[in-house]
């Protein structure tokens, strides 16, 4: 790899690292159809979303009005299982199925966590959906949610456009 390539690579990594999730830097090169395994996990997630009524606007309203334990129970128990899993992966140094070291990238705090968090909370209360459920709602036949999704994409784009001017 040439020096310029390395610099370019790290510049590019910096841009992606402005996002908590955009830092998947696997060294492995797989054919594109390997991605179907992630579609399979998505399929499972979509199934849970609908069977546990997580994509229900009503369930989200109940959560924000403290009228039901359902959503708190789901998020809380998901975190507990996630915590234990990550603890075990670290403790026994469990490798990926391809033998790679599991990498977890730290998230740096910025004021966006607060301002953006409050804005998303409001959007969640209105639409009754976070980004994942938007896809599942469309799948379940609420076609007008396509507009909600397009609007969310536009919101993401607008954030990117004015990012430098926003307090972070």
């Amino acid at each position: 790899m040439k020096i310029e390539d390395i610099t370019k690579e790290s510049e590019e990594f910096k841009i992606r690292a402005t996002d908590t999730m955009c830092v998947n830097e696997s060294e492995l090169n797989h054919p594109w159809w390997y991605n179907f395994k992630y579609a399979a996990v998505g399929l499972l997630f979509g199934l849970i979303f609908i069977k546990a009524e997580i994509i229900s606007w009503f369930r989200i309203q109940e959560m924000f009005r403290f009228q039901s334990f359902h959503m708190f129970g789901i998020i809380g128990s998901a975190v507990v299982v996630g915590l234990i899993s990550v603890f075990l992966i670290r403790k026994f140094n469990i490798k990926t199925i391809y033998g790679e070291e599991v990498e977890i990238h730290p998230k740096a705090f910025n004021k966006g966590n607060v301002y953006g968090g409050l804005m998303f909370g409001i959007g969640w209360a209105i639409t009754g959906a976070c980004p994942g459920p938007l896809f599942a709602q469309i799948g379940s036949g609420s076609t007008v949610v396509i507009i909600t999704l397009l609007s969310a994409i536009l919101g993401t784009w607008t954030y990117g456009k004015f990012r430098e001017k926003l307090p972070h």
């Binding site: 402005t18 908590t20 975190v79 301002y115 409001i122 976070c130 926003l166």
Partner: peptide
Amino acid sequence: MIVAGGFLVGFGTRYAGGCTSGHAIMGLS
């Protein structure tokens, strides 16, 4: 409900650097 709400979801999650899955579940885990 549909347009403004969706916009806030997209803008807010990116400004916050994640949503329920990325922050609440992955981040807390």
